[in-house]
Amino acid sequence: MTRIVVLAGGVGGARFLRGVREEARRRFPDGSGGTTAAIAAIVNTGDDAWLAGLRITPDLDSIMYTLAGVNDEQRGWGRLGESERVSAELREYGVGWPWFTLGDLDLGTHIARTSWLRDGLRLSAAVERLTRRWDLGGVRLLPATDDEVETHVRVRDGDVDRELHFQEWWTRYRAALPARAFVQRGVEAAQPAPGVLDAIASADAILLAPSNPVVSIGTVLGIPGLRQAVTGASAPIVGVSPIIGGAVVRGMADACLAAIGVETSAAAVAEHYGRRGRGGLLDGWLVDDRDAESMAAVAASEIAVSSLPLLMRDADTSAAIAAAALDLAGVHR
């Protein structure tokens, strides 16, 4: 059995995982429309928060909804066909964040998760229960950690330095307040969730989704022991650039990169990740055709590099990206 591990977060991670699943069905068919490959997604939990008494896990939920085919493709988050009556009521009571709207169907997920957490389940066990409802096509979702590790942002707001939860900086302020640093509260005491280290150790390929390198992939790798497990694995590590034509596709990842002094370019993100064996991560790197001029700089770092269109428009284009990543990792039919 071929085992594929994907480090992921956000919309880019969700769409890439959908492509990995589609390519796995084509490359390793099981004869009934599925795949013989095992796909494990290790998902960022740094965006998580307590809100109105509920535990919210945006990246895990976005990926679950996308793989289940019930996501709102236009908005890029939440459930398809949502209503927002409960959020409107909460605003009237002054509860929660008025700039962070939760749909009524989505709230059902948060209530179920929070109920199980209050009963004593760890996050990974709650995720397993949630995903039983949906057909995810054989993809297993693993939170990077069961511990509460939330990303905060140190910003300069006028003449005042303050620290915001990442969701407030990202959703309320749209990353307009210049970030000075990102802080993962609670990360020092965190441990990888059950199944995470085993999945990495047994992988035939480890893929870095085109997710935010700083607050998605960076937060996953910031869990103590996780980066060491990834770099020490026998599997090749191939990343997909989140930069297309010198710009981010959606969101404000460029604001995150600027905060840590990294240029918004495919070559600069590859340099940020670094070459495995030289203190970095990558064995291979995929860049968009429009960034092909960056290939020489990446290759000079002795990272194998290939280019193709990286815009994930549909199942076929997403599967083609996954296929290129698997090929670069040496995982063939």
Score class of each variant (00 low, 15 high):
Pro210Arg: 12
Val262His: 11
Leu177Val: 12
Ala296Gln: 14
Val43Ser: 06
Thr109Val: 11
Pro210Gln: 07
Thr109Cys: 03
Leu177Asn: 14
Ser234Arg: 15
Leu60Glu: 09
Asp30Met: 06
Arg172Phe: 07
Glu148Arg: 14
Asp48Pro: 07
Leu102Met: 01
Pro210Val: 10
Arg154Gly: 15
Asp254Pro: 12
Arg185Asp: 10
Gln228Asp: 15
Gly19Val: 05
Arg132Pro: 01
Val238Glu: 00
Gly330Asn: 08
Val20Phe: 02
Thr57Met: 11
Thr114His: 02
Asp146Asn: 13
Glu163Arg: 15
Gly284Trp: 00
Leu105Asp: 01
Leu286Tyr: 04
Arg132Glu: 13
Ala267Arg: 06
Ala37Met: 09
Leu60His: 14
Ser216Gly: 11
Ala258Lys: 14
Ser216Cys: 12
Leu286Cys: 08
Ser307Ile: 04
Asp316Trp: 00
Leu197Gly: 07
Thr151Leu: 09
Asp48Trp: 10
Phe182Leu: 11
Ala199Met: 02
Thr45Gln: 06
Leu326Gly: 07
Ile200Thr: 07
Gly33Asp: 11
Ile244Phe: 00
Ala233Ile: 03
Val6Asn: 02
Trp116Pro: 05
Pro178Gln: 08
Leu310Asp: 05
Ser62Asp: 13
Trp99His: 11
Ala247Arg: 15
Arg227Cys: 11
Thr66Val: 15
Glu82His: 03
Gly69Lys: 05
Pro98Phe: 00
Thr101Leu: 13
Trp169Ala: 08
Ser83Met: 04
Met312Phe: 09
Ala49Gly: 03
Arg162Lys: 14
Ala270Asn: 04
Arg140His: 04
Ser124Cys: 10
Asp288Thr: 07
Glu293Asp: 14
Gly137Phe: 04
Ala88Ser: 10
Thr57Gln: 10
Arg122Pro: 03
Leu102Pro: 01
Gly12Arg: 00
Gly232Met: 02
Leu107Gln: 01
Arg172Ser: 03
Ile4Phe: 06
Gly46Trp: 00
Arg156Trp: 01
Asp198Tyr: 12
Arg55Thr: 08
Glu271Tyr: 02
Ala235Glu: 02
His110Arg: 03
Asp288Arg: 11
Ala322Asp: 03
Leu197Met: 10
